[in-house]
Design a protein around this nucleic acid. Structure first.
Lengths: 239, 239
DNA sequence: AGCCCAATTTTGTGATCACACTTCAGCGAT
DNA sequence: ATCGCTGAAGTGTGATCACAAAATTGGGCT
């Protein structure tokens, strides 16, 4: 099954975006959504074939994703794959998210408008619906929409890109964890508090509730990775 | 004058590192050292020619650097260049450095050995020597060595890479600022305090003195960018 | 059956060519 | 001299080919 395509990327209208940018968008979206599991090998030619483009732009997109550590290519081995997460690395990702994302939320607060609140309520509703149905894929999409609808307002390019890079690295693993334990135990509702604080312009509360939201989600993943250390490499042992 | 070469990269002797990795190392080193000024246009073919390689591996290295925002290619215009720094962006870089680097220093503390202390004293001595001679290039090299000798010990890949990316973005501009105002006003000596704290294993003091060191350096740059908003685009240089 | 080695396929990497587009140098007219 | 145009040179992008090395397969062995 092909999890990545060019069609659903940015109905970029009059856009003459480069092919490698479109490929990048398609791949990174798939990664954030967790549609490509950790340790899954991918290949330039296969991706290129699935996307209907030559291997060239795929190489550039992949090189970019490798730089962002959303993909890796094993050292001696020359295979390209989605990196696995060690507990050590996950803790660093958690810390970094706690640095960046609450700050983004704080910076976003002054720029909130009625339209934004409306949009956030829709996103949050979608999150709740997905949780109710136990639809992990829909949950991840809606949750991403909710967070980045806020971050986008912060007018802080560097922080925004940092957040996106962190999500790229967490995405594949998050999907596995939530898929394994179901959506039942997912972080309870900090979103409502956050929306209220955004409405009243209470930047402090926005920041702390964002921190709490992230903390709970990542804590779940930490527990999961501690319990289930090696996500079993699939088949074929080493001789 | 050619500011980037492959020879001084990792006397890699038995190393069979990919060419694009060597090119990346050469370019990023030049950028961190500030050897390529902001807004300076570079081109794939020129770099390839100077490095004695084909444009292909340069493309991959450059794509990586663009992902790290150490290079940019102007939107409509398709030229590749070193990005300029706005005040807004510099403040984000400063904040991010304050997040990552003091934490790296704290994490490094338990792993300090006598050899490390020796190395740090040498690096610090080189810093002082460079300051004495007003040699900006030597200062930047020695200062980088000092900081990353510490960061390397932290055993925190993600944070380490984040720090490196931040230095990549700050490097070109730092060179310009310090070159303009001379090395006289450079941050006074937090290095000594830091080394002492590292010796005694006082992680708290290590962290705070690292924060102070970074704060002062970046504060200088903030002042500089506020005073000298547009670093004059510089017309036509011929080599 | 289980295991090992050889041949085949597939992988990423690098080089080269083609193309559309921008920039720049040079010349002519005002 | 200044302005405006035009041809040449240079730009990043994409496609295709060549190649060494790793992964995979398949057959032959114990």
């Amino acid at each position: 099954m092909v999890v990545v395509s060019l069609e659903n990327v940015s109905g970029g209208s009059l856009n003459e975006a480069k092919i490698h940018d479109q490929v990048y968008e398609a791949l990174s979206e798939a990664l954030i959504q967790g549609k490509i599991p950790p340790l899954k090998p991918v290949s330039l030619r296969t991706l290129a074939h699935n996307l209907g483009v030559s291997p060239m732009p795929v190489r550039e997109a992949v090189r970019r994703l490798i730089a962002e550590k959303a993909l890796e290519l094993q050292p001696s081995n020359k295979r390209l794959r989605v990196p696995d997460l060690t507990e050590k690395r996950l803790m660093q990702l958690m810390t970094a998210r706690q640095w960046v994302e609450p700050e983004l939320a704080r910076l976003a607060t002054p720029h909130v408008t009625k339209d934004v609140i409306k949009r956030l309520r829709e996103d949050d509703a979608a999150v709740m619906t997905a949780l109710g149905k136990g639809d992990v894929a829909a949950y991840m999409q809606a949750n991403q929409d909710f967070h980045f609808s806020i971050y986008r307002l912060a007018d802080a390019d560097l922080f925004y890109d940092m957040a996106r890079t962190l999500w790229l690295q967490v995405g594949p693993f998050m999907r596995v964890v939530f898929g394994r334990m179901g959506t039942v135990h997912l972080p309870k509702d900090h979103h409502q508090d956050m929306i209220r604080a955004l409405e009243t312009g209470d930047a402090g509360t926005v920041k702390t509730s964002m921190a709490a939201d992230i903390h709970e989600g990542m804590e779940l993943m930490l527990d999961a990775i501690k319990a289930h250390v090696a996500p079993e490499p699939k088949r074929r042992r080493r001789g």
